[in-house]
Design a protein around this nucleic acid. Structure first.
Length: 277
DNA sequence: CTCCTGACCTGAGTGC
DNA sequence: TGCACTCAGGTCAGGA
């Protein structure tokens, strides 16, 4: 499911219930996600208190009073569900966190992930930037650090296509396969263009399109293709705003040519061959 | 370094 | 109904 807008949607929903909440109970049903969940995660988390969650790329991080940080990655098919009714286990629920808020409300936060490409870990606050999943992340897609000057040195030796570069988390953190196509369509840049062939103006246009598309998608709760849902069960409504992703054979909104689907690095890439140069 | 492939998993959809 | 096959929002390790 989850690229930056979906992860941010989930983070915002988690924030509503975990801030200053007591972690009453942690239940782990399956340890073997993309990597094994640490066996002491349960003991190190219970009876601690959550603070305000933040996000790095596609990772959700929830600090605690004891200076631990709970890391959540949703992989391809991960979902977070937040419920205040009695919990009933469903298929592919792998982990539950029972929290009690300051107002004494109780919520079950459930991590569900059919493909188990996601991951959950607990790390020390001081080790965040040393963590093997976080230490190579590039510039945050929505941060002020994403500028031409910062990007240029990273891109100058890259010969692969700009589409492939955009989903490289060590360059820009947060963009995935759906939004890479959407951003390049918005920027009118052809996805096959080699990265180091782009001019400053091209890069500027891409950065602008990136901010525009991602912000708009967050406003609409992300994109639901298959698995993604907001933690309260609502879908992500950016799907209705997609211009090219999943639209092979349909007419381009601008020039009425057919949208093309073509593989780049074995991942489907949608574009208009006429509008994108 | 950079780039490419295969691997990790389950489920939905398609065609015979 | 069954089976074989393809594809899916991610990302790491290993090798060229």
């Amino acid at each position: 499911m989850p690229e930056l807008p979906e992860v941010e949607t989930v983070r915002l929903a988690i924030s509503e219930v975990v801030n200053k909440a007591l972690i009453e109970k942690v239940d782990i049903f399956r340890y073997d996600l993309r990597w094994k969940i640490k066996h002491d995660l349960k003991n190190n988390l219970e009876k601690d208190f959550f603070k305000t969650p933040f996000r790095l790329g596609k990772y959700i991080l929830i600090p605690t009073n004891k200076d631990n940080v709970l890391l959540i990655h949703l992989g391809m098919s991960g979902q977070i569900k937040i419920q205040n009714k009695k919990y009933k286990k469903t298929k592919h629920d792998h982990l539950n966190i029972l929290v009690k808020t300051q107002c004494n409300l109780t919520y079950t936060i459930t991590y569900n992930d059919p493909r188990r490409f996601g991951f959950i870990d607990l790390l020390k606050k001081k080790d965040i930037h040393k963590h093997f999943l976080l230490n190579k992340l590039g510039f945050e897609a929505l941060s002020k650090e994403l500028t031409i000057n910062n990007l240029k040195p990273l891109l100058k030796n890259r010969t692969k296509s700009i589409k492939n570069t955009l989903i490289d988390q060590t360059v820009i953190a947060g963009i995935g396969n759906i939004y890479a196509s959407e951003i390049l369509y918005k920027a009118k840049i052809h996805p096959f263009r080699s990265t180091n062939s782009l001019s400053d103006i091209d890069l500027k246009t891409i950065i602008k399109a990136c901010r525009f598309i991602l912000k708009k998608a967050i406003k609409l709760g992300g994109t639901t293709i298959k698995n993604h849902a907001q933690p309260d069960g609502k879908l992500g409504y950016f799907k209705q705003k997609l211009k090219v992703y999943g639209k092979a054979g349909e007419k381009c909104f601008s020039c009425k040519n057919n949208i093309i689907n073509s593989s780049i690095a074995k991942r489907s890439t949608y574009y208009c061959d006429n509008c994108q140069m």
